[in-house]
Design a binder for these strands. Structure first.
Length: 489
RNA sequence: GGCCCAUUCGUCUAGCGGCCUAGGACGCCGCCCUCUCAAGGCGGAAACCACCGGUUCGAAUCCGGUAUGGGUCACCA
């Protein structure tokens, strides 16, 4: 297997969201699969769109997902710099060469002129695009106007005839008639390149073997091919990846279902789960669904990607995260839960949390949560000074509907029984409660619901007896007595 | 509108000419387990493989057309 050199090339316009990062996941996996290199390059050629702090957030997102890079803006590498705004001379040299060869020319048209042209074309229902007005300016004239400091851009002189075929690894040949391509801008008036120019120059200089990018680039791939050819560069292998659709249909966007990678981190998704999920939406291997990182590296191949736009299946992500939560080592999970609780619990809970205690409750909660953030609502009662007592209405249902006195008596009975339990361990607690249910003739379900309500403050909780054990006799009995007296009064 | 791309259960996919009366996973439904909720076990419903024509002894798989969906037509990437 030939080691690949692949890259993730984001522009610093904000946080990467999942659609964008999925392509990075696949690219990284391919690098690791082939034993090649994965690099990060910042595409910051549009200063007007730059968002401060983006690079840090982008790198943090990759780091969190466990996508390490071999070369990049922060660590450098043998093909640097890895920031396009620091590579301007290379683009300018390439543009100058293209002008010299007759493959490009300066264009002096103003944006007002261009806007007017476009409006006219639309009104006349003709295809839009630059029609080559400045292409016919004699080279000498153009040169002197440039030298005189007249504002201009550099456009590529697209061949008028013939067609261009690009090869996409997944789709095969994609052919486009050259006349449907206009003379696109390769160097802007501020001296910065457009993506069209930066891509061939950088990916060639950095010896990129596979260009992975969203398939919104497919229509302009022929332009890139033309540029590669004109510059005398060998063309890389292209892999245009499908987009991710929002759950309701339509493109996944910030206001439509998409979230930033780091938001998933905050909500308590595990990096390996998200990685697994992202990878299998748009890719599959046999009958398996759950893949460890190592297994993905072993199996993943860009050639096996699906061509269909995939819908982001939130339910499946949640399920998958639950799978990872259940399978990870208990100690590790406990540490994550402890940090989570320290972050989410009310201010009066004492911090740092007792790790041994959190470790003790971990098996009780781990199969009841899908994301780490779920733990607080489920286990907060373990950490508060006084367990809140639910309302009368919560207690007085079914068997105890309109029977506050009976409910109070039952709860009081449990408190008394618990005081006699020894040793204070789950089996003894359980048999005490079951014995009480039997001797009083109350159905276990009805009795345990009352106890659960009083002791955890919830209708839904971790297993009752284990919870009572971990809570300790004092807190459990106190909660029961308070509930009983509330019902009486 | 021009150009380009795609089309297998609700969703993600397996499938790369016979193993397919189409397999798995999520979700959904039922049963079991059970102190709640989960988790787990078992079972089920769910895709005339978009449609129409070809090629072939044989097509979900190859070819063409149609339809539908998507992308793209900037001095943004």
């Amino acid at each position: 297997m030939t080691p690949a050199r692949v890259r993730y090339a984001p522009s610093p316009t904000g946080d990467p969201h999942v659609g964008n990062i999925r392509t990075a996941v696949w690219t990284w996996l391919y690098a690791r699969h082939t034993g090649g290199k994965f690099l990060v390059r910042l595409e910051d050629t549009d200063q007007s769109r730059a968002v401060p702090g983006s690079l840090e957030r982008i790198l943090a997102s990759l780091r969190w997902l466990g996508l390490d890079w071999d070369e990049g803006p922060d660590i450098g590498g043998p093909y640097g710099p890895y920031v396009q705004s620091e590579r301007l001379p290379m683009y300018q040299a390439a543009a100058a060469r293209l002008i010299e060869q007759g493959n490009a020319y300066p264009c002096f048209c103003s944006s007002e002129e261009l806007d007017a042209l476009r409006t006219r074309q639309q009104a006349e229902k003709r295809p839009t695009g630059y029609e080559g007005k400045c292409r016919t300016i004699p080279a000498a004239t153009a040169r002197s106007r440039v030298n005189a400091g007249e504002p201009h851009v550099i456009r590529f002189a697209t061949p008028r005839d013939g067609s261009t075929t690009v090869v996409d690894l997944l789709r095969g040949d994609v052919t486009v008639e050259n006349r449907t391509l206009d003379d696109f801008v390769i160097l802007k008036s501020d001296g910065f390149p457009t993506y069209h120019l930066a891509h061939p120059v950088d990916d060639t200089a950095m010896e990129i073997t596979h260009v992975t990018r969203g398939d919104e680039w497919l229509p302009s791939a022929p332009r890139h091919a033309l540029l590669f050819d004109a510059l005398g560069y060998p063309r890389p292998t292209y892999v245009h990846t499908p987009i991710i659709l929002a759950p309701g249909g339509g493109k996944l966007s910030k206001r439509h279902g998409a979230k930033f990678v780091l938001e998933y981190a905050e909500e308590g998704y595990l990096p390996d789960a998200l990685l697994n999920f992202l990878c299998i939406t748009g890719w599959g291997h046999g009958d398996d669904t759950v893949f460890t990182r190592e297994r993905l590296i072993e199996l993943f191949d860009l050639a096996d990607l699906s061509l269909n736009p995939a819908t982001f299946d939130m339910d499946k992500l949640n399920w998958l995260n639950g799978v990872y939560l259940r399978e990870m080592p208990e100690r590790d999970l406990a540490e994550l839960l402890a940090r989570r609780l320290e972050h989410d619990l009310p201010a009066d809970a004492v911090r740092p949390l007792d790790r041994a205690f959190v470790e003790a409750i971990t098996p009780l909660v781990r199969e009841r949560i899908q994301v780490l953030g779920d733990v607080t609502a489920l286990a907060d009662f373990f950490f508060v000074d006084q367990i809140p007592t639910p309302t009368r209405e919560e207690f007085l249902q079914k068997r105890f509907k309109d029977d506050a006195a009976g409910a109070a008596a039952a709860i009081e009975g449990v408190a008394t029984a618990l005081e006699a339990v020894s040793p204070w361990e789950t089996p003894a607690i359980e048999s005490a409660l079951r014995g009480l249910a039997e001797s009083t003739g109350v159905k276990v379900g009805d009795l345990f619901t009352l106890v659960r309500l009083a002791v955890t403050g919830k209708r839904v909780s971790p297993p009752l007896f284990e919870s009572i054990e971990l809570l300790g006799e004092t807190k459990a009995v106190d909660a029961l007595r308070r509930a009983a007296s509330m019902l009486r009064g």
